[in-house]
């Protein structure tokens, strides 16, 4: 059991693997979210903060390979676990197929929702190789976009499935 892991302090140290690299953050307040850990302690700005209540999906990441809203995970819950953010999907400069499809289908306008939608679409395509419209809508139901009207996002997922 771990009780305030820095001696003499109530703040905790969180060490986890982020996009394949070992990262350590000191002085994390126990009530801070994984989203805060990524953005404020580790400087990874790809994961977006919009609602902090699980409604918009812009903070979506993989935690041990499971799609989660990072705003609803305690930073300390990520201790020892593996986190993949949108920055960690591409291999070097080579975008993964769903990222390229978002560009090619014109599914990006202001781009704020895009990292979360890329993560949710990536997760869907791992589970269902060639999803139909209903499956796409259900999988992306937790991601809000204020610009595109969603149709081009759905097109992008189809394009990624059947390039």
């Amino acid at each position: 059991m771990v009780l305030g892991r820095i001696p003499g302090s109530q703040d905790v140290r969180v060490s986890c693997t982020v996009n394949g690299e070992r990262r350590v953050a000191e002085g994390v307040v126990p009530s801070e979210s994984l989203l805060h850990l990524l953005r404020e302690h580790l400087g990874l700005m790809g994961t977006k903060n919009a609602c902090e209540q699980g409604e918009c999906g812009s903070c979506s990441v993989y935690l041990d390979g499971v799609l989660v809203c990072s705003c609803l995970v305690l930073a300390g819950q990520a201790e020892g676990r593996a986190v993949t953010t949108v920055e960690g999907l591409a291999e070097g400069d080579e975008l993964v197929r769903v990222q390229q499809a978002f560009i090619d289908a014109g599914a990006v306008q202001c781009g704020f929702c895009t990292p979360g939608l890329i993560m949710a679409s990536h997760d869907l395509l791992r589970r269902i190789a060639d999803p139909d419209d209903d499956e796409i809508r259900e999988a992306l139901a937790g991601n809000l976009c204020r610009c595109t009207g969603y149709q081009k996002i759905i097109d992008a997922v189809h394009l990624a499935a059947r390039p």
């Binding site: 699980g54 999906g57 979506s60 499971v66 799609l67 989660v68 809203c69 609803l72 995970v73 949710a120 997760d123 869907l124 259900e138 999988a139 139901a141 937790g142 991601n143």
Partner: peptide, 9 residues
């Protein structure tokens, strides 16, 4: 319930 990430967690 919710959305996939909410149901996952």
């Amino acid at each position: 319930v919710g959305s996939p990430p909410i149901r996952n967690r």
